[in-house]
Simulated scan of single mutants.
Amino acid sequence: MASASSDPPAGKRYVSPTVAQSVKILVVGAFGVGKTTLIGSVSEIAPLRTEEPMTTASIGIDSLAGLDSKTTTTVAMDFGRITLGSEVVLYLFGTPGQRRFWDLWAGLADGALGALVLVDTRRIEDSFEVVDQLELRTSMPFAVAVNEFPDAPQYSTEQLRTALDLLPETPIVTCDARDKESSAAALISLVEYALEFPLASKAYA
């Protein structure tokens, strides 16, 4: 799989004429794991965001444990685009993380090649619930990307695989959602894995 293209000119709007394949990718994860940040870091267009200020109505519903600086939340979806090499473009759809928005996932997942599950190891139990819901609501392949927060505990790949109850073949990678190259590498790992599935290979041949 080709690497991410170099930084595009500011304000790039149109897909390159060399692009032969477009792929829809879902970016999912628990509340506050960095989905909006990841899409914003890799998108070659100004990302579409549906961020709204958090209000007192979320008290007791949206846990801010470990998220002291968080003041906004996604209420519909995030959208961005990244070109890999010169022939493949990824359309990224980020989902809201809160339980009350999980019903949106099935609609956003329609036509997607796979999902990148962003994980915060400070709140690993929240990520387990996300993986469980993703498997219940969709049948798409997914990869796990651990967003490396500075104060997050470190776990081995096997510890994470056990904690999240993942199949042996499910990719687990690390990334810094703020960094373009790191986030792009996580997305590339997902695409390479997802294209190994027979149904996906036929759909995107």
Rank of each mutant, 00 (worst) to 15 (best):
V15C: 08
T18C: 04
T18N: 08
A20W: 04
A20P: 01
K24T: 05
K24P: 01
I25E: 01
L26V: 13
L26E: 04
L26I: 15
A30P: 02
G32D: 03
V33T: 09
V33D: 01
K35H: 13
T37L: 11
L38N: 01
I39A: 04
S41Y: 01
S43I: 09
S43E: 08
S43R: 11
E44A: 09
E44F: 04
I45C: 11
A46I: 13
L48R: 14
R49S: 15
E51G: 07
E52D: 07
P53Y: 04
M54G: 11
M54L: 15
T56D: 10
S58D: 14
S58V: 11
I59P: 03
I59T: 08
G60N: 06
I61A: 09
I61D: 10
L64Y: 06
A65K: 15
G66L: 05
T71N: 14
T71I: 12
T72R: 10
T74N: 12
M77S: 09
T83R: 15
T83E: 12
L84C: 06
L84P: 00
G85S: 05
E87A: 11
Y91Q: 14
L92V: 03
F93S: 10
F93N: 07
G94A: 06
G94S: 07
T95S: 04
W105P: 00
A106Y: 06
G107Q: 15
G107L: 05
G107F: 10
L108E: 05
A109I: 06
D110A: 15
A112H: 04
A112R: 05
G114I: 00
G114A: 02
G114D: 00
A115E: 00
D120N: 11
R123C: 02
I124L: 11
S127V: 02
E129L: 13
V130K: 01
V130C: 04
Q133D: 12
Q133T: 13
Q133H: 14
L134S: 07
L134D: 01
L136W: 12
R137T: 15
S139A: 11
A143K: 00
A145K: 01
N147K: 07
P153K: 10
P153E: 07
P153F: 05
Y155Q: 10
S156R: 08
E158P: 05
Q159M: 09
L160H: 00
R161V: 08
A163N: 02
A163R: 08
L164Y: 00
L164R: 00
P168C: 06
A177R: 02
D179S: 13
E181T: 14
S182Y: 01
A184I: 00
L187E: 01
I188W: 02
V191P: 00
E192N: 10
Y193E: 03
A194H: 02
L195R: 14
F197H: 13
F197R: 14
P198K: 09
L199W: 11
L199H: 06
A200W: 05
S201E: 11
A203K: 09
A203V: 08
